[in-house]
């Protein structure tokens, strides 16, 4: 029974998450592009920088948050920088990427700090919502996304840290991850013994379960800000 559940999470649910994510994103983008444009501009003044630079500044330096709340700003920037490392780190679990090994390191990138930053970040974002005034505007979606994200990162971090620190001699070789992902990518899914018989397996299943859930919800929730923010920036800097 548990084996079946584990298999569903590790294979069919991953496919489902992937399909929902891609289809959802395409649908969301197509809907925006097919909507009528506006006449004139909604841009703000002054226009100090050329548009692409202004968009880059807004997106990467978040000046509005910097002016308003320095602590929040630090968490926003650290969290989103960590997301970047997180994505790169996972890519290395899927493929061997020599370019990333310019500075030789053991997979996963960041030696556990990425997960730490993101966990502290999600907790901060969550606790922020417990107090006024942000509490008044929060809806279940806000809490739910943060909680599943936190759980996903927590179990992912355990997976990595336990391995790195060699606790209880727990170890899943990178090669096993790559075999698992290669199976998924070639539509020939398999669970390598080094994965499914590893003492890590339960932790891994939980990690992938929450990650799947998060990815499925991504296009249909406020997570769409990852893409739409850039549209809004370029509208404001037009």
């Amino acid at each position: 029974m548990l084996d079946l559940f584990a298999y569903i999470v590790m294979v069919p649910m991953v496919y489902l998450a992937f399909i929902l994510f891609v289809a959802g994103m395409v649908w969301k983008l197509v809907r925006v592009f097919r909507s009528p444009s506006i006449t004139g501009t909604l841009g703000l003044f002054p226009r100090e920088l050329p548009r692409p630079l202004a968009v880059a500044r807004d997106a990467f330096l978040v000046p509005s948050a910097f002016r308003k709340d320095r602590v929040f700003w630090v968490f926003i920037v650290a969290f989103h920088a960590a997301v970047l490392f997180l994505i790169l780190g996972h890519c290395e679990l899927v493929w061997n990427i020599p370019a990333l090994q310019v500075i030789p390191h053991r997979v996963f990138l960041g030696a556990g700090s990425v997960g730490m930053v993101m966990m502290i970040g999600t907790l901060y974002f969550l606790f922020r919502r417990f107090g006024a005034p942000v509490r008044e505007i929060s809806v279940p979606e806000d809490y739910f996304l943060l909680i599943i994200l936190f759980l996903s990162i927590l179990f992912g971090s355990i997976l990595h840290l336990v391995d790195r620190l060699g606790i209880g001699a727990m170890h899943v070789p990178v090669q096993a991850y790559r075999e698992y992902f290669a199976g998924l990518l070639t539509l020939n899914p398999r669970l390598p013994v080094m994965v499914s018989y590893s003492p890590h397996y339960a932790v891994m299943v939980i990690h992938i379960f929450f990650s799947n859930l998060f990815i499925m919800l991504f296009p249909f929730s406020k997570m769409i800000h990852a893409v739409f923010a850039f549209f809004a920036y370029s509208t404001a800097r037009r």
């Binding site: 709340d69 005034p133 942000v134 406020k222 769409i224």
Partner: peptide
């Protein structure tokens, strides 16, 4: 769609 209700 894109507001995250950050409260800023």
């Amino acid at each position: 769609d894109l507001c995250t209700r950050c409260g800023l």
